[in-house]
Simulated scan of single mutants.
Amino acid sequence: MAALSLSSDTTIHEISERIYRISTPVQIPGGGGFSFNQYLIDDDDPLLFHTGLRRLFPVVREAVERIIPIDRLRYVGFSHFEADECGALNEFLAAAPHAEPICGQIAAMVSVSDYADRPPRALADDETIPLGQHSVRWLDTPHLPHAWECGFLMETASATLLCGDLFTQGGSHNPPLTEGDILEPSEAFRHEMDYFSHTRNARAMLERLAALQPTTLACMHGSAWRGDGAALLRALADSVERA
Rank of each mutant, 00 (worst) to 15 (best):
D9L: 12
S16V: 08
S16R: 08
R18C: 12
Y20G: 01
R21M: 08
S23D: 04
S23E: 06
Q27Y: 07
Q27H: 06
F34P: 03
F36M: 09
I41K: 03
I41W: 03
D42I: 15
D42Y: 13
D42W: 09
P46D: 13
L48A: 03
T51H: 12
P58R: 02
R61H: 07
A63P: 04
V64S: 01
I67G: 01
I68N: 00
D71H: 05
V76N: 03
G77K: 06
H80N: 05
F81M: 05
F81S: 00
E82C: 05
A83F: 11
D84F: 13
C86V: 09
A88M: 11
A94P: 07
A96I: 12
P97S: 03
E100W: 02
E100Q: 00
P101Y: 06
C103T: 15
Q105R: 13
I106P: 00
A107P: 01
S111E: 15
V112E: 02
V112K: 00
A116I: 15
D117R: 12
R118P: 12
P120T: 03
R121P: 08
L123V: 10
D126W: 10
E127Y: 11
I129A: 04
H134R: 09
H146L: 12
W148F: 08
E149G: 01
F152I: 04
T156D: 09
A159L: 07
L162D: 04
G171D: 07
H173N: 02
H173P: 00
L177G: 02
T178S: 10
T178Q: 06
E179Y: 01
E179A: 05
D181M: 12
L183P: 02
E184Q: 04
E184H: 03
A188D: 12
F189H: 12
M193H: 14
F196P: 00
T199C: 07
R200N: 00
R208T: 00
R208E: 01
R208Y: 06
L209M: 15
R226H: 03
G227S: 11
D228Q: 02
R234E: 06
A235H: 08
A243H: 10
